[in-house]
């Protein structure tokens, strides 16, 4: 009997522990003025990664503009950001839960068959920045320009190995885009992450790769890789040509990149959205944001409202159709009303 009581108590204790975990952080309050309490920012990518880094540098500036309400950061990664986004969707539409995510995730869920949610299911606050991919090869590779690389790839179809990080990622779409608009046939091989691609290229396991500038800059400065072009129409770095300027067939789809943005629940009251948008725009104009952006080679964006949607609507058709045509996306963008561009 004594034993039974003990076991029963233990079980009770476990259940209480479980309950405590499940019940965490559900405080709700009617809002009159905004913000009056702590704001939760949900980052849909893992801690320590590039998106996380960008978010953690931007949010303190936003916090300052909002006048002292603390913003605390949570990483909820998984399923291309759909897990964190779903979490935000389940929260009250009061502006106290911000979603920090990338176009790379919420712009492709539909066609990748990951989720029925879409970026349009949220209310935009701001597009903070964009990561531009670059096309690079090893320092001892025979190609010195994109033209040489494309010509060689046309001469030996499927023989040049192009590496990218993970299905649906920026590198993947860049690799697909590069193949399609150059008209050359590459053997496109996926790797486990951005860093793994750089390692594979340095070790000579792939011939050409596509990564955001920041992940290759150090190796570029050390003379270990050659940057052939950035995915833009105008030069981003003085000494690296813009892909659009170099090869005209790329012009219509440049600049291409992944945008980091802040969204809130769709039903958030307009007054709150306006306060947030205002504060975020000011934070975006902060010189410290520029300083950080230069340091990690990202472009400052700053679009809000209609301009925000314009950027998304330009980005989506290019990306989703590339993924669909390559057999990566399982559902046709046409099913979601995305026109081919």
């Amino acid at each position: 009997m004594k034993n039974f009581t003990r076991i029963a108590l233990s079980v009770l204790f476990i259940l209480m522990a479980a309950a405590m975990v499940f019940a965490g952080g559900e405080a709700e309050e009617e809002v009159v003025a905004y913000p009056t309490q702590e704001i939760e920012a949900v980052i849909t990518w893992g801690a320590g990664g590039l998106t996380d880094n960008i978010a953690r540098n931007f949010l303190p500036l936003l916090e300052e503009q909002l006048g002292g309400s603390k913003i605390y950061v949570q990483n909820k990664e998984g399923a291309s950001g759909a897990i964190g986004s779903q979490y935000v969707m389940g929260k009250p539409a009061d502006g106290y839960t911000l979603l920090v995510t990338t176009t790379e995730s919420c712009g492709t869920w539909n066609v990748m068959g990951i989720s029925d949610m879409d970026v349009t299911d949220f209310q935009p606050i701001i597009m903070m920045s964009s990561l531009t991919p670059t096309c690079y090869v090893s320092a001892d590779a025979p190609w010195n320009t994109v033209e040489e690389l494309i010509a060689d790839a046309k001469a030996r179809p499927g023989k040049i190995i192009s590496g990218f990080a993970g299905p649906g990622s920026l590198g993947h779409v860049s690799a697909l885009l590069f193949s399609k608009y150059s008209g050359a046939d590459f053997n496109i091989v996926p790797f486990g992450g951005g860093a793994a691609v750089v390692a594979a290229l340095l070790g000579g396991h792939v011939d050409v790769a596509f990564n955001p500038l920041i992940s290759v800059m150090e190796n570029y400065k050390a003379g270990k890789v050659k940057l052939l072009a950035t995915f833009s129409n105008e030069k981003i770095l003085d000494e690296v040509p813009a892909l659009g300027a170099q090869v005209p067939s790329f012009q219509p789809v440049m600049p291409y990149g992944v945008m980091v943005m802040i969204l809130v629940h769709k039903d958030t009251p307009e007054s709150i959205v306006n306060i947030l948008t205002d504060a975020a725009s000011k934070a975006c104009a902060d010189p410290r944001w520029k300083e950080f952006a230069d340091k990690v080679y990202i472009e400052i964006m700053g679009q809000t409202g209609d301009e925000f949607w314009e950027v998304v609507n330009n980005w989506k058709p290019t990306t989703t159709w590339l993924l669909y045509d390559a057999g990566v996306a399982t559902k046709s963008p046409a099913d979601f009303g995305i026109p081919r561009n």
């Binding site: 801690a47 320590g48 990664g49 996380d52 880094n53 953690r56 540098n57 860093a195 793994a196 750089v198 390692a199 340095l202 920041i214 992940s215 800059m217 150090e218 190796n219 400065k221 050390a222 270990k224 340091k295 990690v296």
Partner: peptide, 29 residues
Amino acid sequence: LGIPGDAVTAVMMGAFIVHGMQPGPLMMV
């Protein structure tokens, strides 16, 4: 090389960047 070897060093790399240090071949120089 600026390439993390495991999950912890991947996070550590984020910490370096936050503090304005970019690990990579140049760091040795």
